[in-house]
């Protein structure tokens, strides 16, 4: 590795330095655009006591859900945690600390964390259980609550394409939380489907600049689909 080249060649190297009790921010929405191999590497390493920041927690046998059986997650900050039986069991048993956070607030916590903004006011959650213990203030006659931003020891991100300098391009709705997570890690690790040489990506089309990226690795992905919904193809005619 030299200069701005962020490429590493093994997942072990990609997640080096992750230790017990760290905070990890993960991109992805449901199972879409999740850094599946980086999650597998965390499972392999056996790191424990982690605080995970992610919109969801995967399903029982895929995504962040695979970190549950070995009790690697101490706390999760997420907006929606259905679809996962082991998760529910650990939460109900009080073995897993869950901080439910509105989706937009969660996205903004990451964005603000990466942008050096320590906290922000939002109307979201005012007057609800989310507001408990938070500062409230009125602006122009409306009520808002103060939400603190989040910075992770690590951020794990899935992008579609990158150049060796870590400039990233995401694909379709697999973008979701990934660009935000990328900005909010002290160490940001990105896995992609394809790595090209610097200069090959059009600078106008780069979604995340390489400055946010510390390590980059090319992987292969299962891309599991959570809800497979289809309509009949036109060849089959209408119902």
């Amino acid at each position: 590795m030299a200069g701005f080249d962020k490429v590493v060649t093994s997942y072990e190297e990609a997640m080096a330095g992750l230790t017990d009790n760290m905070t990890v921010i993960a991109g992805g929405f449901g199972l879409c655009g999740i850094p599946e191999n980086l999650i597998s590497e965390i499972k392999r390493k056996g790191t424990k006591g982690l605080t995970l920041v992610s919109n969801n927690c995967g399903v029982d046998d895929f995504g962040l859900g695979i970190l549950l059986p070995d009790r690697q997650i101490k706390k999760i900050i997420a907006s929606y945690v259905g679809e996962n039986a082991e998760f529910e069991r650990q939460m109900m048993a009080g073995e897993l600390d869950v901080e439910l956070t509105p989706q937009g607030t969660l996205a903004e916590k990451m964005r603000a964390g990466g942008a050096g903004i320590p906290a922000f006011f939002t109307a979201t959650g005012y007057g609800t259980p989310v507001a408990t213990g938070k500062e409230e203030r009125q602006f122009k006659g409306r009520d808002y609550i103060l939400e603190e931003s989040i910075v992770g020891d690590f951020a794990i991100v899935k992008a579609w394409k990158a150049d060796r300098y870590g400039n990233l391009v995401f694909r379709k709705t697999a973008r979701n939380f990934n660009p935000l997570a990328a900005t909010a890690g002290k160490i940001t690790v990105v896995e992609v489907e394809e790595i090209v040489e610097p200069g090959e990506l059009d600078p106008d089309h780069i979604h995340t600049a390489g400055i946010y990226v510390d390590r980059l690795i090319q992987g292969t992905f299962e891309k599991r689909i959570e809800q497979r919904t289809v309509r009949p193809s036109s060849a089959q005619g209408k119902k």
């Binding site: 907006s79 929606y80 259905g82 939460m91 439910l100 509105p102 937009g104 979201t124």
Partner: peptide, 14 residues
């Protein structure tokens, strides 16, 4: 039922 609010709190506030 404790699955979470997803985007609903943002939607009703915004």
């Amino acid at each position: 039922l404790i699955k979470g609010m997803g985007g609903a709190m943002d939607l009703v506030a915004g």
